[in-house]
């Protein structure tokens, strides 16, 4: 692939007590690629996201973003370089109205620099972004306190937060979890649009059907180790993946 390398992960390792949450994971991500990360519960997917974004310090290994080391930097420094993430548990700023939630990332020094040294009308930008992720523009819902938003909207808000930061690399941690089929269907075009704008995306997901439609490449984790990597089709044909994900044939038969 001739596209430039955006992210390089080398031998990343993190232990919690006796448990090795992420065990020597390597991978490379190219510009404008969408990488799916799958694996059973507890396989280290979220820890991997935390390691890349600086929320957790690795015990060994390193993360390079566009050739520069970002492992060891505090989370806000990683974000300033253009690496944004969503959280699996969508926790908004409860006291604030939905659109004001976006004013926080819009107040970031990164946005200030990218917008040519001005913040502009943050409220207006926030409302535009919310419309983009599927909030009804002229409805009252953007003014509602974030605490009262339904789960589907909270997830959209999480995505909008990433977009507000004008990130180049987005790590979406189980963005689709807890959403209805219709809600997921309405989110997929948003992610497609981000891709068409040249963003590079890592999606940690349990919803394989939807993920496989979006992802260029899939990485499979099990007990912290990378057990497979390839296109969605390749990966799903591997027996090791089927076993990790679905259990062995015998178990499936018994159930």
């Amino acid at each position: 692939m001739s596209r430039p390398v955006v992210l390089e992960v080398r031998g990343l390792l993190k232990r919690y007590g006796g448990v090795t949450a992420v065990d020597g994971v390597d991978f490379t991500l190219h510009e404008n690629e969408v990488l799916g990360v799958i694996g059973p519960n507890g396989s280290g997917k979220t820890t991997l996201v935390n390691l890349i974004t600086g929320f957790v310090k690795p015990d060994r290994g390193k993360v390079l973003y566009r050739g520069k080391r970002i492992s060891g930097l505090p989370p806000y420094r990683v974000a300033l370089k253009g690496v944004a993430r969503t959280f699996q548990m969508a926790k908004p700023f409860y006291q604030l109205p939905a659109y004001k939630n976006l004013v926080v990332p819009l107040s970031s020094p990164r946005v200030h620099a990218l917008a040519g040294g001005s913040y502009g009308d943050r409220d207006a930008v926030a409302k535009d972004l919310l419309e983009e992720v599927g909030f009804e523009r002229d409805s009252w819902v953007i003014n509602k306190a974030a605490a009262s938003l339904p789960h589907g909207y909270l997830k959209r808000l999480e995505l909008a937060r990433c977009m507000a930061l004008r990130a180049d690399l987005m790590l979406l941690d189980e963005l689709f979890s807890g959403l209805s089929l219709a809600e997921v269907a309405s989110m997929v075009p948003v992610i497609d649009k981000l891709r068409s704008r040249g963003k590079t995306i890592i999606m940690v997901e349990h919803r394989l059907r939807e993920l496989f439609r979006i992802a260029d490449r899939v990485l499979v984790l099990n007990f912290g180790q990378k057990i497979a990597e390839g296109t969605p089709g390749q990966v799903m044909d591997l027996p090791a993946v089927r076993e990790a994900y679905l259990g062995s044939e015998a178990e499936v038969g018994d159930a």
Binding site: T53, F55, P74, P75, Y76, R77, A79, L80, A84, R85, F87, K91, P92, F93, Y94, Q95, L96, K100, N101, V103, V104, P105, S107, S108, P109, R110, R161, A164, L165
Partner: peptide
């Protein structure tokens, strides 16, 4: 607003590059 954000969810504010 950012200060209130820290009170609500400091991780989210960190991930906004602040």
């Amino acid at each position: 607003l950012v200060l209130k954000g820290i009170n609500d969810n400091d991780r989210s504010v960190m991930s906004a590059g602040i």
